[in-house]
């Protein structure tokens, strides 16, 4: 029973973060939600008894994708013609 509650919670959170990735107005917020989604995916893989995929998802989905996307968001904020400027 407890495990069903846990699985239900993980699935609900997966769907909720997936919706909020698209629904959040600010791009930064969307990316943060996407990182949270990646962490929840890692949790889901553990529940699916796939620890290999959970390891890869935690390292890639949460770590590398997050850095890449946040970097891109910062670039879009600065604008196309002043990325050498101070404001980051």
């Amino acid at each position: 029973m407890t495990s069903w509650l846990l699985d239900g919670l993980v699935v609900f959170m997966l769907l909720a973060t997936a919706v909020s990735v698209l629904a959040s107005r600010s791009l930064f917020r969307a990316v943060v939600m996407f990182i949270a989604f990646g962490m929840l995916m890692a949790l889901a893989w553990v529940r699916l008894q796939a620890p290999d995929i959970a390891l890869a998802e935690a390292a890639i989905g949460a770590g590398l994708t997050g850095v890449l996307l946040l970097d891109a968001v910062a670039h879009f904020r600065r604008g196309p013609d002043k990325e050498r400027g101070g404001a980051s």
Partner: peptide, 12 residues
Amino acid sequence: LRKLLAFNLMGS
């Protein structure tokens, strides 16, 4: 960028 995020959701 949002299209890219959505595409990643589809993959997951």
